[in-house]
Design a protein around this nucleic acid. Structure first.
Length: 281
DNA sequence: GTTCTAGAAC
DNA sequence: GTTCTAGAAC
């Protein structure tokens, strides 16, 4: 039970009704905890008036084991990448921090992550590379510009050099990877990203990760929902903007198909088992 | 983006 | 009965 005092108002106790008021069914222990946390957060947010306290990724307790192996696998290459780290110019990072808006919503999480030195693999005056917080393969990085650009839709011809630089940095990051010769990598953007702030995915094609859990994850990297960096650059050069085809969001619902042998696989667990035949550990 | 879970699929 | 997914909530 919560005991707190804000703005002169004392809240001694929060009581959660263990029954759902609509269905009258008994709530699970987890659901009771979730409602307790929600009420507590609402009180804290209301009285402390601190919108930055609750950002993406901190909402619910998470299993510690998830992604651990991938993180360890990436670390060795990250150290190598860091050795080539340039000293950042005085502009860029601070400017990005100042111009960013609303860090509170989960979709703004990348703005926070890119500032976190623990996640940074490389940075220069234009871009930063971080490990994806929930890697969908053995190696999965994100290249982000310091400049605030919300998404592909906001890219224009004047961003051409920046986007080319992002691709160069992506290629260099792959070269630093100890498995660069044995694994294939792709570099590209999600056509309709969930997270704000334009980010280039650099991902190995093993898709061997406990964080890859559903059809949306799979299809976002193995269908045309994943837009190759080179294609994006070409679009910017020829049209001055990036064209996302109508119906692209429907690609996420396509049946599961192996990206290596094109075999249809019925379920995610079966797909993950199938991938072991292409990428033995 | 993730977590959680009802209910569909098996 | 168990496994798996889709969709709501965050």
């Amino acid at each position: 039970m919560l005991k707190c005092q804000y703005a002169g108002l004392s809240v001694r106790r929060i009581v959660i009704n263990p029954f759902d008021c609509h269905t009258n069914r008994q709530l699970s222990w987890v659901e009771v905890q979730r409602r307790l946390l929600k009420t507590k957060n609402a009180l804290v947010t209301k009285f402390k008036e601190d919108p930055a306290r609750d950002h993406g990724g901190t909402k619910r307790p998470r299993e510690l084991s998830s992604g651990d192996r991938e993180s360890r696998t990436q670390d060795s290459s990250l150290k190598a990448a860091k050795q080539s780290e340039k000293v950042p110019a005085s502009i860029g990072q601070e400017e990005a921090t100042k111009s960013s808006e609303s860090f509170g919503h989960w979709s703004q999480g990348l703005k926070t992550s890119m500032q976190d030195p623990k996640l940074q693999v490389y940075k220069d005056d234009k871009v930063v590379v971080i490990k994806d917080k929930y890697p969908k393969a053995r190696y999965h990085w994100l290249v982000l510009p310091w400049q605030t650009i919300s998404s592909l839709k906001a890219l224009r011809e004047e961003h051409c050099d920046l986007v080319k630089h992002m691709q160069q940095v992506a290629e260099r990051t792959v070269q630093q990877c100890p498995d660069a010769n044995s694994l294939r990598f792709r570099t590209g953007y999600h056509a309709i990203p969930s997270m704000s702030h334009v980010h280039l995915h650099v991902i190995s094609q093993d898709f061997d990760s406990p964080c890859l859990k559903n059809k949306k994850h799979w299809n976002s990297f193995t269908t045309d929902y994943f837009m190759e960096s080179q294609d994006v650059i070409q679009m910017l050069e020829t049209n001055g903007r990036v064209n996302v085809k109508e119906g692209t969001s429907e690609l996420l619902k396509l049946p599961l198909r192996c990206h290596m042998c094109r075999k249809d696989i019925p379920t995610i667990p079966a797909l993950k088992e199938h991938l072991k035949s292409h990428f033995p550990s």
